[in-house]
Every structure is written in C-alpha cells, then in structure tokens.
Design a protein around this nucleic acid. Structure first.
Length: 563
DNA sequence: AGGCAGTACTG
DNA sequence: CAGTAC
DNA sequence: GCCT
C-alpha cells in the first residue's frame, strides 16, 4: 500500500504496545501513513507539552485539537479488562492523566480506515471494557453526525458564543438530519461489517413445548406478521389470545378446549388444533417465507416507516433490501425522522442490555442533578418493568409540587443542551419547540458501541402517576386499563384518571354516543386521581401491579395477569 | 357492523 | 388528514 | 380476529 498520509497529524497511543513481528509490521504501516506512535503516556506527554507551547497559546483550542487527533488504539482486546489495565499499559504517571478524555478505538478502526483509504467515523469502533459497570465518561466533541475529517480541523478562532446563539445552534444541530450521502455510507458499512445477528432458531425447544406454550410461541409470531401487514387489530387479537391462554386453567387438547377460552374464537381455535396436531402453523410459515413480508419487516424497522410506507416502497419502487432504498426511492420520500431512522438503522434495532440502561440513567441523572438537584430524573419504560433488555431508554422528569410547565420545560431544555454538549445526544426526531416537555432523541455513551433511542418526558407533579403508568407501560396494559376506564364511564390518559362532569354526561346522552367518544376537553372532565399509581389501579378495580408485573403478553412474563 | 387507547408530531 | 410513534 |  502506498503511503497516503491518511493519519497525518494523528497520535496513536497503542495498548498494549506489542513487539511481535506482526505488530511491528502494522506499526510501520501506521507511521508510513503519517501517524505518530506512542507506547506510554510519558513519551506522549512530552509531545503534548511541545504541542501546547508551539500552537496558539490558547489552552482551549490546543487541547481540543489534541482530542481530535489523539486516539488510543487497542491492539489486543483480551488484555484490556478495565481502566486500570489501560492505565498500566500506558504507564500513566502518578500525577495522573485524563485518559478518559480520549477516544479508545479498536484496531479495526485503523485497518478499516486504511482499507477504505479514508478516516471512518469512530462510532462503530469504540472499544468498551468487558463487564464494565455503569461508570461513564464525558467526551468533548460531538461526533457521529459530522465527518471525522471535519472534526480534525478545529476552528482557530472560537469565540465565546452568546447564550442565545449557542442555544439555537445546539438545537439546530440536533434537529438537522445527516446528509443522504452520510446515511448511505453508514448504512452500507453497518450492513457489511455488522452482519445481522443470526436469529435464534430454537427448533429443539419446540419439541419440548407443551401445547399451550407452542400455541403462544406461534401466535406471538403471527401477531408480529399481522402487524407488519398493517392488520393491527388482527395482531391485537393474537396478543389478547396469548394472554388469555396464559390465564387458562389447563392445557388445550381439542377444539372445545380452545373455544372455551375467552378471546379465542372460531378462527383461532382452528389454528390451535392445527398446531396441536401437526406441531406446525402453515399460515405463519407461508407468511414468513413470502419475500414481501420479509422485506416489509426489514423496512418497518426503520424509525418513521410503517405499514403504508413500506408497502409503497416495496410495490411502487420495487425496494427489496435496505441498500435498495438509496437506489430506488426518491429523496423526497424521506422525512427527517426517516433519515435518522436509516442512519441509525442498525443501532436502533439492537436490544439494549439492562446494565447499559443503568449506565445511561446514571449519566443523565448526574447531569440533571448538576443543573438542579430538585428535579427528579427517573428511568421508566421497560427498564422500570425490570426487563433484561430494553428497546429504548425512557426518562421521566418531574419536581416535587411543580405544576409549572414553563419551569419543567426550562429544565428539560437545559438538560438537553448539557447532554448535547457532553456529546451524549446525537439527534432529535422532531424540532424542539418552545414548551419542551417531550423530546425523542438518540443518545450514546462514549464507551459504548451503539447510539440508543432515548425519550424524555417532563410532567406536572399532579399528573405524575398517570404519566408514570403510561410511560411505564407496557402498551397492552395501557390499552387494557384505558378500556376498563371507559367501561366505567371514566377516562384514563397520560395525565391521570378522569370522571365526566354532569354536562358532558348529558351531552353524550343527548347525542346518543358513548362518553369515551366525546372529544376530550379539560373543562368537561374532573381529575379523579393523578398522583398515586396504586389508587388508579384500584379505582379501575385492579390490584396494584408492581412494575415488574406489567409485562403483559410478554413471553417472559411470569405469573400472568387476568385481563 | 363497528369498535378495538389516547395523544402528539410531521408533511 | 393520513401516517407514525410513544 | 374477537366481541357486542
């Protein structure tokens, strides 16, 4: 390979600094391409000193520049177990050294960059220690959306921006989606390097399953298939049936057994019989094998793409794969949300290990505490339901006795700004408006590989329980509770449990429609309960469910809950 | 035959 | 308003 | 796809 000077101006701290033949060969390659290599901090620090005195005597600029161009390259991942081992390999002096302010990248970043003849974004190559507990580091620059090349040229004259200017700049940057070229690049790179994890096909387990377990197994897959097809209510029927089967007193042996279970009608009973007798579900298999279903499923994993858009892309534009989208679908079809959905296609479809969500929680709540310790930042969603993995991270914000939306909004705005400045927040799925109470974004911890979906919701104190129930979910429980409320002439929403005022009842009667169909106007309904979760459950005639018992309809659910 | 949760955001 | 997401 |  001819020297490209690709890494010109870059400092590589190599850990461990290996002296094998192969390593020497690699090191030679790095230096040929312009990199300067360092085995220990001591030698690097000398360079830092020189760097700082030679360049503009502006601490801010020079340090920042150094951060852009200094990379810790992990040459042997197995030898690095934690921060301590990293320090010892680099021989960090007693006086200390801010190691955690530098990017720690896997060797693959260097080799892939050489291969591609360009500096690749760091995001996919961030090294993280195995089993690392939630300790999180800050990063100085916000990467990801901008190209690495832009980052390595720090602006020479960085003047202090006014608060307003900085504010609008941050939100502008958060809101603007990446360029199509960059999206394409990342999506293609992801689909290559990070081959889709093989779907767990547990043929063996199927044989050992009881009738009911097998039916649930197939039904839950069928629910997904129906949803992808856009048949949301059929999908819902399967989910409801699953829950009913879980609560059924005995094994389903025949058609009558199935029909005796609520939510199982003629059609589902037939499916049950087929599954019991053949241990297979033909309709499901055919569905799963059709290319249309397969492609639609892939497309709908893009945030912002649902049943209608995926169908259009499949039939009208002939899209058959994710990379296909860039060839066949006109750019005008991409909303900002879809652009982000594509850019983070791979990231956002990964399950998040519970431990990582804990790390997110600690990081975000620490930032929140520094802004104002009186605000409570609680992690809800599936994390609160104690699931082992989460699809996203949900943050719930409130402050004791605070029902002032302006105050809540101010806090959330500041929080978002700080999180952006620290490099954690990467994007926003819709522009932040003046009363910022809800914010949907992507967030990434510096030592983690993936950007995650992160949601924020700030709520008034008096509505905290209603909001908490809503935001904790799961969705099936939410729907069930709202239906229950309707049946009692009440109304449950994101704020709390409401009862109708006299005149609404009269009006509904006069119009001959159900109360729940009445347009919800604050004036027409009285808040019954919004501060106590347990009271809301009880008012609906339910026993209180601990968050961990709210995974209704989930395969991993234990115990079951009678809906 | 009509409902199936209720709300908020984009375009 | 339709579409999507929470 | 089930229930009313």
């Amino acid at each position: 390979m001819e020297p490209s000077q690709l890494f010109k101006g870059y400092n590589f701290l190599l850990v461990p600094f290996l002296r094998t033949k192969l390593a020497s060969f690699r090191h030679n390659l790095y230096t040929k391409n312009g990199a300067t290599l360092y085995p220990t901090i001591n030698q690097f620090a000398k360079q830092v000193k020189k760097f700082n005195s030679e360049l503009i005597p502006d601490y801010y600029d020079s340090e920042e520049a150094l951060h852009y161009t200094t990379i810790i390259v992990v040459e042997d991942e197995e030898k690095l177990t934690d921060m301590t081992s990293l320090s010892s390999y680099l021989k960090v002096p007693k006086s200390g050294f801010p190691l955690d302010e530098y990017k720690v990248l896997r060797l693959a970043w260097v080799t892939d960059s050489l291969e591609e003849k360009k500096l690749l974004p760091y995001s996919k190559y961030l090294f993280s220690f195995p089993e690392q507990k939630g300790k999180v580091k800050r990063e100085r620059e916000s990467e990801s959306l901008s190209d690495v090349k832009e980052e390595k040229e720090p602006s020479k004259k960085r003047k202090r921006k006014s608060v307003d200017e900085e504010h609008s700049l941050i939100f502008e940057k958060l809101a603007s989606p990446p360029k199509i070229e960059d999206i394409k690049k990342k999506v293609l790179a992801d689909s290559e390097s990070l081959r889709a994890s093989t779907p767990e096909s547990d043929e063996e387990d199927l044989k050992n399953m009881s009738n009911n377990e097998l039916i649930i197994h197939y039904f839950s897959q069928m629910a997904k298939e129906r949803k992808v097809e856009g048949l949301q209510f059929k999908s819902l029927s399967y989910l409801r049936a699953i829950n009913a089967i879980k609560n059924a007193p005995k094994e389903i042996e025949c058609r009558e057994d199935a029909l005796s279970i609520p939510k199982i009608g003629k059609s589902l009973a037939d499916h049950c019989v087929e599954i019991i007798e053949t241990r297979k579900f033909g309709q499901l298999k055919r569905q799963q094998e059709s290319t249309e279903a397969h492609v639609m499923k892939e497309l709908q994993k893009i945030h912002g793409v649902g049943a209608v858009i995926s169908e259009k892309w499949f039939n009208h534009y002939g899209v058959r794969s994710i990379p296909d989208i860039f060839e066949k679908v006109p750019e005008s079809e991409f909303t900002d949300a879809i652009k982000l959905g594509l850019y983070y296609y791979y990231d956002w479809n990964q399950k998040i290990p519970r431990e990582e969500v804990t790390a997110h929680s600690e990081f975000v709540s620490d930032v929140g505490k520094k802004i104002d310790p009186k605000f409570i930042v609680q992690t809800v969603g599936s994390y609160r339901r104690e699931t082992k993995t989460c699809g996203d991270v949900d943050f719930f914000i409130m402050k004791e006795d605070c029902n002032d939306e302006t105050k809540l909004s101010q806090f959330l705005t500041t929080l978002v700004k700080e999180l952006f400045k620290s490099g954690y927040l990467k994007c926003s799925l819709f522009p932040a408006h003046d009363q910022l109470l809800k914010f949907l974004t992507g967030g990434q911890l510096t030592d983690k590989k993936f950007c995650r979906r992160v949601d924020f919701l700030a709520v008034k104190w008096k509505y905290r329980a209603g909001a908490l129930i809503y935001f904790t979910g799961n969705d099936i429980l939410n729907r069930y509770m709202r239906t229950l409320a309707n049946n009692k002439g009440l109304r449950l929403n994101n704020e709390g449990l409401f009862k109708p005022k006299r005149r609404v009842i009269d009006e509904a009667n006069k119009m001959g429609i159900r109360l729940s169909k009445m347009h919800f106007k604050e004036d027409d309904w009285t808040l019954v309960e919004g501060e106590d979760e347990e009271k809301i459950f009880n008012l609906l005639g339910l026993r209180y469910l601990e968050p961990k018992d709210r995974n209704i309809g989930n395969l991993s659910e234990i115990g079951g809950f009678r809906l």
